[in-house]
Design a protein around this nucleic acid. Sequence first.
DNA 1: ATGGCTATTATGTATATACATATTGAAACG
DNA 2: CGTTTCAATATGTATATACATAATAGCCAT
Lengths: 246, 246
Amino acid sequence: MSLIETAAAESGGSLHQRILSDISEKILSGAWAPGHRIPFEHELTAEYNCSRMTVNKALSQLAKAGLIERRRRSGSFVRRPQSQAAVLEIHDIRIEVEALGLLYRYERLARLKRRSSAEDRALLELTAAGPVLALECLHFAGQRPFAHEQRLINLTAVAEAGEEEFLEIAPGPWLIGRVPWSEAEHRIRAIAADQHIADALDIEPGAPCLVVERRTWSAEHPVTHVRFTYAAESHTLVARFKPSQG
Amino acid sequence: MSLIETAAAESGGSLHQRILSDISEKILSGAWAPGHRIPFEHELTAEYNCSRMTVNKALSQLAKAGLIERRRRSGSFVRRPQSQAAVLEIHDIRIEVEALGLLYRYERLARLKRRSSAEDRALLELTAAGPVLALECLHFAGQRPFAHEQRLINLTAVAEAGEEEFLEIAPGPWLIGRVPWSEAEHRIRAIAADQHIADALDIEPGAPCLVVERRTWSAEHPVTHVRFTYAAESHTLVARFKPSQG
DNA sequence: ATGGCTATTATGTATATACATATTGAAACG
DNA sequence: CGTTTCAATATGTATATACATAATAGCCAT
């Protein structure tokens, strides 16, 4: 069966876009693991019955996005997910807590696999329905709850997350070790704690909290949406910039 | 004189890369302002003496990167910078307010020139005493107060700020137009409004607020420290990242 | 005027082709 | 046996060409 028949999902209709999203789906689903050699340009040319330039355009973009690595004479290979530098850019609660000199502890409160609701699709910016994993977790600093985490994982993009219980490892580090991210969006705001959050963080209802929501994409595919809620006294976000160019 | 002779900077040697970096340099330097129509593909084809495909590859990448916007039949245009968007979005309050479709109004509450106190020096990370300008301002969206601003300007670094009253123009845009920044640090947190902030923003004392503090340096010199306070319901910070690794 | 048709224009996508370049495996040589 | 050389291979870049598509300007007829 050719790739053409199983063809892609959404994407802007053009052939090189379809090739691109076919391949990135294979990578993100885990069907093609890191290190896997993806078909040569001339093979894809045959698969899709198109010119090499068209295939090349798709593969060049994948390389630019960091999903694959291309080597002359050898072929193109699925890359290992992003480096540590990028990991630091996405803040890791364990590291924050340990930087404070406190003992870190993680607890999973709830886990539910379900078909995406309309709300789920809005949060993940998904167009089509599909399986998602909903998680609720708590992160502790010493004895005190430090952050509450509410997370959705798009199982269409990261199928193997459906098999993980997340009892021992938090979903953040788990995902970072597996899925290369190509883009992230943060939304940051202040809220008054509702009863649920107040109970979880052991604070008064109505107390101010910092909410950080993050959406992550990998090569155009929504991967996860997470909302961290911190009690006001417990946390300050720090970000240092230099003016960027290019 | 052709672009070829003034040609590009660094970049990987290939022609489309050079075209790309020539153009992005024009844009980032401000030589081509937002809205400026960049040369048509066929003009660049002539400039660089290459095929349209080569020019197209460069322009397509620029469009994908968000630096330009392409419109059929009309040409390609410089977009309002997005790479700085994360920073500007945070700090040009006028733009934020107008993006909400509301009327922006600015008001200076207080202005005081003084020798830096110990607290001032801590906020600015100054080692030696010297003159500073302390400002307190309000930004309105429509009828409602939107953000409260408390600012220190290091007059040793920006002497001419001492002559400015800041009655008509807010210190943020004034500084941006004069002082190039080389580094900035943000601290973001949630607080409960104290009486002073509650009065200024017309909210209840104890209501949650988002606080964004920003320190800016220009060539190692501390320039300014500013604290913005937003009522919780009025504001969400948005920041989009791509991983920095190549 | 006004609505609709058509020609023009710039971009969007794709093809076939060509040559350059890096890398590898194997053959040729000392 | 080790080294050099060479040919094969996959990607990298560029060309000339073609047709599709979207937006606009101008024209025409009502």
